[in-house]
């Protein structure tokens, strides 16, 4: 029996009057990788962004149902969204390092938490970069602009930046979709390493990636959760026809 870190219960999301997520109930086990798959527009990214309340930034969004993180509904009235996001980090589809140095990118999170001591920051920066398996590549140019790194390096830098805040859960929104195969495999290796300590939810439309990296897979279709199970079962013996059609490449 897995320890359930995040539990969505009857979650629906509307843009104005249009439902984008319909009555989703999904459990995310701790220190596992859960993949969300489905054709584009199916709501998988939208669902991901409900988990750290990133949808708050968009006007005109209404949410029903609840999302429990460690048993607390994050849509309760007196939730501290800022602290919630410290606990739940996010990696975006397009890598988005700040136009600052590598060092300042990583130190951004610790600094906003009030850490100013250089030795302490140095330590966190090195630790985070090592965890994101990019230390060896950037240790000589920590004070160069992060924008001078390659696309794959930038994405791993963003992962390191998230780790520096010490989250418990990491949400990844198609983190490798813009990367070449070598960078992609580095990210996938990294995900494998990270799940020792973090609960990871990854959105991908690359089914091989879902199969390679995840322990659990959830299939979304037009705002609904069609099926969720252990990854090997979803890919070998799906119970719904839609799932089978999708993973066998018949649509999407």
């Amino acid at each position: 029996m897995e320890n359930l870190k995040v539990r969505a219960k009857n979650l629906s999301l509307f843009y104005g009057d249009n439902p984008a997520l319909k009555n989703i109930s999904l459990d995310i086990p701790e220190k596992r990788v859960s993949a969300l798959i489905g054709p584009s527009g199916c709501g998988k990214s939208t669902f991901l962004r409900t988990l750290n309340r990133m949808n708050d930034l968009i006007d005109n969004v209404r949410i029903e149902g609840e999302v429990l993180v460690d048993g607390i509904n994050i849509y309760d009235r007196n939730i501290d969204v800022v602290n919630l996001r410290k606990k739940i980090g996010m990696i975006f589809q397009k890598s988005n390092p700040f136009a600052k140095s590598v060092y300042d990118n990583i130190a951004f999170g610790p600094r906003i938490n009030g850490i100013t001591k250089k030795s302490q920051l140095d330590e966190i920066v090195e630790y985070s970069l090592r965890q994101a398996a990019i230390w060896d590549e950037v240790k000589g140019r920590l004070h160069n602009s992060a924008l001078s790194l390659s696309g794959g390096q930038q994405q791993r830098l963003c992962i390191a930046r998230t780790l520096a805040v010490n989250p418990e859960i990491i949400l990844m929104d198609e983190p490798a979709s813009a990367l070449d195969p070598i960078s992609t495999s580095k990210i996938e290796e990294l995900i494998h390493e990270l799940k020792q300590k973090y609960t990871i939810v990854i959105v991908t439309h690359n089914m091989q990636q879902a199969a390679r990296t995840s322990d659990y897979t959830a299939f979304f279709y037009i705002g609904e959760l069609v099926e969720v199970n252990r990854t090997e079962i979803i890919f070998s013996n799906p119970s719904k026809k839609q799932t089978e059609d999708y993973i066998s490449g018949r649509f999407g």
Binding site: M54, L57, G89, F98, G109, I112, C158
Partner: peptide, 17 residues
């Protein structure tokens, strides 16, 4: 870009930060 703001907020920065 909105991505920059999202990056910051996702790291737990407040709006003013």
């Amino acid at each position: 870009p909105v991505e920059m703001r999202e990056a910051s907020l996702a790291l737990g920065a407040t709006k003013w930060q």
